[in-house]
Design a protein around this nucleic acid. Structure first.
Lengths: 198, 198
DNA sequence: CTAGTGACGATATTGGCATATGGTCACAAC
DNA sequence: GTTGTGACCATATGCCAATATCGTCACTAG
């Protein structure tokens, strides 16, 4: 994990993350100081730096946590899918719905994610990689069952789909596309499914 | 035309636009004052306002001009296309190449376009509408010739394609996708063409 | 050794004030 | 009528000192 320090497993690290999540969510990243976090957990500011390289590293941790939840939401939506097409549709809808909810219900955390996307933080890279893995599994299953075409190289297919969905998957871009949810992503998903037809 | 005033055809209007283009390009929108423009054309600042509602209206004009050139670049690329698929590919590649060139060669003007996209200025709406028209013409021709499928409603097809290509067509989003040009858009175009297959 | 901190330097950030800028208007010249 | 402007106001911007914040380090306690 980038930006970490000291003992990997440690109660204080968890306390820091917990306090950071609460503060970032309520006051925003910019308006909370690491002194605030220190006060919240009852230690000195210097002690925080035994566990994290920087304030930004704490931001990374919160962002990773947040994106993890968004991703989990998409992953969970897959279960209800009856076919691989359906699973693909539900996966994207799930992720997008969770992202949009984050935007409306927890704007401060959303802004961290958007900033992370802009700066290409590892948490966003990891999030995209996991999305790609999940997508790949669905498509391979669909190819196996004859639901999808098999000619196009699998990696190109996955990359292309994620690029096409980028406007809705990437928090930085999604925020400019909120007004036509969920219709717009549905249109692109339909296009993607047409492109997957055997 | 939004933000305009006074005589539609007028030499001074053209002078203003010309001076604005030169100044915005060299110093940026923020760093050029309307007094600068007035001085450049040898009139008083007040006279500028006989032709434009606001400084932003001048920015709109420059942005419209810039996007017009980008669009024209894409439109011109179509001519060399041998098939409708080829035309579609060339159109997007042309637009994206022109946009990228603008980014690297005329960053100041690019920034105006990106800002316009963020604020949904009419010039950007018009640009997207023209792209949609052009795309629609190509697809209809392709449907006519049997090159493309005909089941999907034409408007949904066009909207979906533009949404899928948005990351590269929209200046605001393109700037985050410059590092993998032209491979990344090519992947999405391939996906789009697969989705159009009969 | 581990847990923990106060004090410190370097760098952001803020608040207020002077100035610059966007935009209007009444008016002059023709 | 059209062409053109200086003077003006309200707001935005730039600037600079005071302050706040980040991050480190030497150090203490057990």
């Amino acid at each position: 994990m980038a930006g970490r320090r000291g003992p990997t497993e440690h109660g204080v690290r968890d306390q820091i993350v917990e306090a950071a999540r609460a503060h970032f969510s309520r006051f925003g990243y910019g308006k909370t100081t690491v002194a605030d976090l220190a006060k919240a957990i009852g230690f000195s500011k210097a002690y925080i730096y035994k566990f994290f390289d920087s304030k930004q590293a704490i931001g990374q941790a919160i962002c990773a946590q947040t994106l993890e939840q968004v991703f989990a939401s998409g992953k969970a939506s897959i279960a209800e899918g009856k076919s691989e097409s359906d699973k693909l549709r539900r996966f994207f809808n799930g992720v997008i719905a969770a992202s949009a909810e984050l935007f409306f219900e927890d704007k401060m955390l959303y802004d961290i994610a958007a900033h992370a996307a802009e700066e290409r933080w590892p948490s966003v890279i990891a999030y995209m990689e996991r999305a790609e893995e999940t997508l790949k599994a669905i498509i391979l299953a669909g190819r196996e069952s004859g639901e999808f075409e098999r000619k196009t190289p699998i990696d190109e297919t996955c990359e292309a789909i994620l690029l096409a969905m980028q406007s809705f998957m990437n928090p930085l871009m999604l925020k400019h596309n909120l007004k036509d949810l969920p219709e717009d992503p549905a249109k692109v998903i339909n296009l993607v499914l047409r492109s997957l037809a055997p």
